[in-house]
Amino acid sequence: MTNESQGEFLGSVEEHLLIHGIKPDDLENVRKFGAAIGDRMPEYIRHFYAWLETRPDYREYFHDGDLLGRVQSSQIDHWQSFFDARVDEAYLATRVQLGEAHARIGLPLPSYFAGVSQSFVIFTEKLYEGGLSPEEHAASMISIVKLLNLDTTIVVDTFSKLVAEQFAEQSMALAEMSTPVTAIWDDILMLPIVGIIDSNRAQDVMAAVLAKIMETRAKVFIMDISGVAVVDTAVANHLIKITKATKLMGCECMISGLSPAIAQTIVDLGIETGDVRTTTTLRDALEVGFATIGVSVSRA
């Protein structure tokens, strides 16, 4: 996923520098400023987290020490590469990654921007103690802002792209949730389940199937799960309940589409499937179904 997203929209290094009007001089200015801060770089973390603790969303996003440690060390890496100012593909890639990370944890963009401007304050007011001439200092301020703009552009671009992708994935998951129970033969109902089965969906399926059984008095119901994303304990229990309910209404439920991998995980998880009839393919289930209702199928 990371590689795909980089290729799709991330332009060349030159393009990015051009957009933000960054010239070799600017990069040199950023480096000079970095050199003036020198060894004090690691102090950034202390200042940054002192500020962060005053923010209400702090605990929400940085609650455990293990994660915090990793975040902090990658933050130092991030700013070191910033003041190294070697804008190459690897540099751009780390900014893409930052955008992805923020999108995944759902960090709001305002929090990110607040963090960036606070970092600017820390570097220019807290860690800088002189060393550049007034002209050099003024020039480096402008160059730092330009490079910061390049960084944030990539981060935000990636962020919005990924959020849009997640949104699309969620809508797709929801769209797949329709439950078209179909009578494919006299007395045989079928429902292919695609996507995810959560408790709401399981209830929808149950209600739709039972209503259809009531209406058609079907004797066989085939539920094909070859398109189901995950069969864990909870999902299996939902499926077992559906088979029980249909059985009580006089309709035998078969589950088709069990791959060998799913058969294995079901047994390893210790799920008791009882007397639920299962088959690997829909075809096998259909054959059993035809036998149950007393229809014999032969090739013409």
Partner: peptide
């Protein structure tokens, strides 16, 4: 049927028909 299934009623040996 749905509520019995939700409560995990034991159906061993039970035969049911629609009508």
């Amino acid at each position: 049927a749905a509520s019995l299934a939700e409560l995990n009623a034991d159906l061993t040996g039970v035969t049911a028909m629609g009508s």
